[in-house]
Design a protein around this nucleic acid. Structure first.
Lengths: 350, 350
DNA sequence: TATGGTCAGTAAATCGTTACACCAGATTGT
DNA sequence: ACAATCTGGTGTAACGATTTACTGACCATA
């Protein structure tokens, strides 16, 4: 019972290894039904399972898609990883998960390592403005699907992107606040050197202007632009932001955060200061992680349909599996949805 | 630049493939420094990277450890996955992540698939009382490290377990409440058919008795024991529990939840009912996920040192890599720590 | 009766690495 | 001076699958 090879199956079924291989690769029309039965019988009898390493060495192909996220410690990425695995499994693919910790060097290392391991399709969750550090591999035929990062002008042409429309999302968040009567808003994020952040901020600004307010009067709290912060620390960013913003003069009545973790951090920071979210200050998040609904007060947020996005990503991969590269990549932009909950309300009258 | 093999490197360096292979496998003492330099030069020059499939086919070994968690959608498992990857990477291992969704069939399928892929070491996060469904593979030499599930009497003898002492944890949680003056407690979990749950409940009971109270007077809310619930739904379990418990007569003043997600659900449920956590009712969680500290009020909880546990798990794997099986497995039980925050207080006087 | 075409299946050549056995020349021990 | 040992390598056979090119046997057609 140690290890059973295709040869042993062949011997047991009284055929050659080639015939067993043919059966295994959907070429079963090329043999008598009786033979086919004998082989399948032998396979189950011996408990044979093809050796992936050998198969991959020979064919050069894998049924594995790589997934690179900033950090599964962040519930948003954890939830997305789960959805992607679900979608991939349905198509017979496996998912290999990697945490880049938002470090371009690690990101590149992972991509190269995956490539060397025979992985030819990767779902990359990055927010880097440029994909230059990966271009040399994409050119060799890697199918890259970026998630939460719309395609940029100078990306390799075969790159596919699945993302929500961040500008619309940012607009939804901010216009929700202005329509409630808020006139003094702040946008909180970490560094702005990422494409989805700039998109969301842009939407924020357009909503501010649409409400007849001056963007210049709003605050942009974009961190100290210091060390590239990890994802779990997103909450700390929000908390620190709240402390600084509300200690200063002329504090806002509404806050739009770059994502839910940061938003929760902001809420926590406000609570530290004795302010009540959903009454003294309104807070809008982004993503709609499970905890948004669980929080007290439940968080108003802009939802990303991760289940649907995961399916789209896998569909894109499946449809191109084994094809030569060269086809220009699509860019799918989904419309985000505003979920209104208890963390937002009309501003207090004073 | 398509694909560069060890042969090409050998030719470029003017040596045989064997010599290059020797260098690659830490047998570099067996050659002149000059030769070594020529080879390394050729490697970087050509951008050579060993083909994993070939290497694995030849050696039968992988530098990959499988990680099977209930669901990375749950922040606790996401955080643990991140820690494990960190620890594994430091030892030159990769982590292949799988979500079992608490389904024994999926669990088994994953283990078999990993085994077939050459993975010889797996960190399994399960709460099933029995490992029978995996015994046939463990016997073949799979190194299994269970996490958050202390070894059971009838487990295969080579299984190693890394876990906290759940009995102590349950005791810490309950005795914290009794020492605050609570006399009417409820233990909330999903189904109790899992080893860590029974352990925690046992600790809960011992603390109740130590406080001079009768276990019979306490409530055990263990779900409808219905469909095996997923992990994300842990929060829903808590919420539903709160609704039922506090709608009934003689509601408790203190709740111990099986984990933080459930605890957060309980808090949410209490809020639905207009009750204030940390004043009207005290709630203790388990795990200390990031969100515990972020919540309003911050959650009192029993911390699992996942970073340390991840390191121990990897250390266990590294020390046995490539060894023949047979050595009986250890069982490491760490002491959990109570983290007191705002969700617990003395019971209200009425 | 040649000729050609299916049918059902096989032999052998890979894929890129590693490991075992071996070897020539230099050095050492006695 | 002779064998023994060491140094710095090399040759070759696997590892387990896939795939291309082939081979008999059988049948139909002209």
């Amino acid at each position: 019972m140690e290890k059973v090879t295709i040869q042993q199956v062949a011997r047991a079924a009284g055929v050659s290894a080639s015939t067993v291989s043919n059966l295994l690769n959907d070429r079963s029309e090329r043999m008598l039904p009786a033979t086919r039965d004998r082989i399948t019988e032998a396979i189950t009898q011996l408990g044979y399972r093809p050796n992936r390493a050998a198969r991959e060495l020979r064919t050069g192909r894998t049924r594995t898609v790589g997934l690179i996220v900033p950090s599964v410690g962040n519930p948003f990425w954890g939830a997305f990883a789960r959805e992607l695995e679900h979608a991939a499994l349905a198509e017979g693919y496996n998912v290999l998960l990697c945490n880049s910790e938002r470090d371009p060097v690690r990101e590149r290392r992972y991509v190269e390592e995956l490539w060397d391991d025979g992985v030819r399709e990767i779902v990359l969750c990055t927010s880097l403005p440029s994909l230059n550090h990966l271009a040399h591999i994409v050119e060799q035929g890697l199918r890259l699907v970026t998630f939460d990062r719309p395609t940029q002008a100078d990306d390799p042409s075969t790159v596919v992107s699945i993302s929500i429309n961040n500008v619309v999302g940012g607009h939804l968040a901010a216009s929700h606040l202005t329509s409630l009567g808020h006139r003094n808003l702040t946008f909180v994020s970490g560094s702005l050197r990422s494409v989805n952040r700039t998109g969301r901020y842009q939407g924020f600004c357009s909503a501010v202007e649409a409400a007849g307010l001056a963007v210049a009067d709003m605050t942009l709290w974009a961190g100290a632009d210091e060390a590239p912060f990890g994802d779990v620390e997103a909450a700390d960013v929000g908390r620190r932001a709240a402390h600084e913003i509300f200690a200063a003069g002329n504090p806002p009545t509404g806050v739009v955060a770059i994502n839910d973790m940061t938003a929760l951090g902001v809420c926590r920071g406000l609570r530290d200061l004795g302010l009540q979210v959903g009454r003294d200050v309104s807070v809008v998040g982004f993503d709609d992680i499970i905890l948004a609904d669980l929080y007290d007060p439940p968080l108003t947020t802009v939802r990303q349909p991760i289940g649907q996005m995961a399916q789209l990503a896998i569909a894109e991969i499946v449809s191109h599996h084994g094809l030569a590269d060269g086809e220009p990549g699509r860019s799918v932009l989904l419309r985000p949805e505003l979920i209104v909950r208890g963390s937002t309300a009309a501003p207090p009258v004073d």
